[in-house]
Design a protein around this nucleic acid. Structure first.
Lengths: 211, 211, 211, 211
DNA sequence: TATGAATGAGGTTTCATTCAT
DNA sequence: CATGAATGAAACCTCATTCAT
């Protein structure tokens, strides 16, 4: 009862706030180390240096902690990728490459958690929703970019910008998955160039090519 | 030891063979219904109409049954997609579209199991290996196709056919995942056209365009 | 990991201490009632009035509980038999008889557990070690006694005190086994007298005889 | 039904006889290798080169096979030790030593099975009965020997020959157990001499001593 | 007589979660 | 706020034994 309320209301003191943060951090490390299913609440608590029961003062269940961790990862990702998309005066190819690179860096840093997120998508509806929302945000952004280029005569106007954004976004996203989650070995420059070239040509981008 | 041997050597009689097939089929249905983690061996046995113990006469554990099911799914997929790739005299765009369509049909039919496969890739190294092997086979095939077009002057010769095959393969594969596993709603014609156009343009395919 | 730790470190509170003791006691009663193999963890937990899981908070497995019980039994036995061996001024025959009687009383009280211990000696190396350690302690004590008598000219000096102690100790020990574990019916006085006489004569003890 | 009858009636053909013998031999080897509890019927059948079901054509259950093996071991032991006890004209000490040596050799050859027998004594009433019967036979023989010496004035007439036989028999038997079953390291000559001397003195045997 | 497929009771163990202190 | 003892559902897997062929 008491615990329920506390969980719902969130930490009341700054000490509680700190404990919650510590547990969250510990949870991420344990999830990254053991995966979602093999991660045990006991280990999280122990790594956080608190007792079993304390964990449940802050999180309803293991799933809730996972969701909290993953939400934060996604939020950080979004924030990091939301930086103003440089001046649109640049060549399309440069814009695209820069975006791909930015995404790559961000993906790499959170690769393991992203892998776990993908894995849970099929199991936890909440997580799936979270994932889809993120995808939608990204895709919208990409679609806007493509539409913008089309408007400026820098991309093929016949293309459906939404579907194209979806497919190309997945191409890049999935490539990074193979690369950083499944540890396939690619040469960074070559891969970035390939992705960028494919993308640029796919949307019929005019202008300078990657030499 | 005895059970071990039977499991390793496979059924000795045709009756055993049949039972194994029945269990395998039941396993697939239960996995599709409940997912890997919630699937219980008891349910599989019960759906197969055999006893608990019988299951263990044929499979080491749940994981082994899953692996067997998934292996079969992948093999079927490979077989199905291995059909002679029509005469290369056709326009590239038609070749590409036909391939995308074939893959789409195959993917759709096994979508749930493919979803589970993707999910287990991070958990079971064996499954990951299986998955990567399939990917490699597909990619090689695609890369050969691209190289072929390049040789015939029908595709941009500057492109690295292997990397391109990898990225474009993932684009299509992942799109189908969103479509059939995560149940995103796409218009079939529009999506197929988009994927095909993006692909064709990306590799600089010359020739007729999708009207 | 958490449970592991608790098991390794032992109970952290006195409440835990008490529970452990209760389970241990229940385990002994169940082992005595059902024997080692037929004893079920569920029965032990139930007799202790705790849940299944609680048992595993304190013991790794049935074997561990057995080992704990048996260790305690052996320790109690050792303590009980370690009482100062009366003044050595007494007649050897009296010293020997008193020792035999003391051992008999102790053996009888723990007969069933000792029987189980003997039974597990062949199966569990740990238990075997425990058993041999106890035997060694007893034999050393006996050998010292014989050597003492030899030094005082009260026993045949030609005898190897260690081997003699070993054999005579086993004679008594095994007789008690037949008596209290396998329930052979002997007359207490007659048997004690026989054992004592045999022992005394065997070591060539001089002095008064059992009349 | 059918099988039941066959088991009760015993093998009908000499081929069946042979199979039974083969299984019995395999059973002994598996029991010796794995102990009673860890021995699996499957392993016995497999080592005998027959199928699962065939085992049950000859034995009711694992326990029955064990009993058959152990009965044979005990019978062999009895036969081997039943050889005419040399002329009683010899010195008592020589008679005793010879008997101890004969027993030692026989014990050593069947040590593992004897160990298992001891272990099952507490679990299987049948086995216990078998064991006690053997003990009784031995003890009677020993008691007769002691009584004989007493009659000839070669041993203390005050001793109860039955109880003495019991205790001394156990002394020797248990020593061999420690020696050959639990693998305690003893020097053969020294131990045989000690046992013999203790025994001879214990019964007040007159005559030559072991030098 | 021999085979081996099928059975199913049975026990062990884990770990997320609760709650009294 | 924090602790850790207690819970108990749940799932896995083995292996002695039967029986149809």
């Amino acid at each position: 009862m008491n615990q329920q309320r506390r969980r719902e209301e969130g930490p009341a003191t700054s000490r509680g706030e700190a404990t919650r943060a510590i547990i969250l951090k510990a949870a991420r490390r344990i999830f990254e180390r053991d995966g979602y299913f093999d991660a045990r609440v006991a280990d999280i608590a122990s790594k956080a240096g608190v007792s079993h029961g304390t964990f449940y003062s802050y999180f309803d269940c293991k799933e809730a902690a996972f969701k909290a961790v993953v939400t934060k990862v996604v939020e950080d990702l979004m924030t990091r990728l939301a930086v103003a998309d440089a001046p649109q005066l640049a060549e399309p190819i440069d814009t695209i490459r820069r975006a791909n690179k930015r995404y790559m860096d961000a993906y790499r840093d959170s690769a393991i958690m992203i892998g776990l997120l993908e894995q849970q998508v099929l199991v936890q509806p909440d997580i799936c929703e979270l994932r889809l929302a993120a995808v939608r945000t990204f895709n919208t952004r990409i679609a806007r970019g493509i539409a913008h280029m089309q408007a400026e005569g820098k991309a093929d106007p016949d293309l459906d910008p939404v579907l194209a954004a979806e497919a190309l976004g997945l191409m890049v996203d999935r490539t990074y998955y193979m690369w950083f989650v499944l540890d396939q070995k690619y040469d960074e420059e070559a891969m970035l160039d390939t992705l960028t070239t494919l993308w640029a040509r796919a949307i019929g981008a005019v202008g300078r090519d990657l030499a």
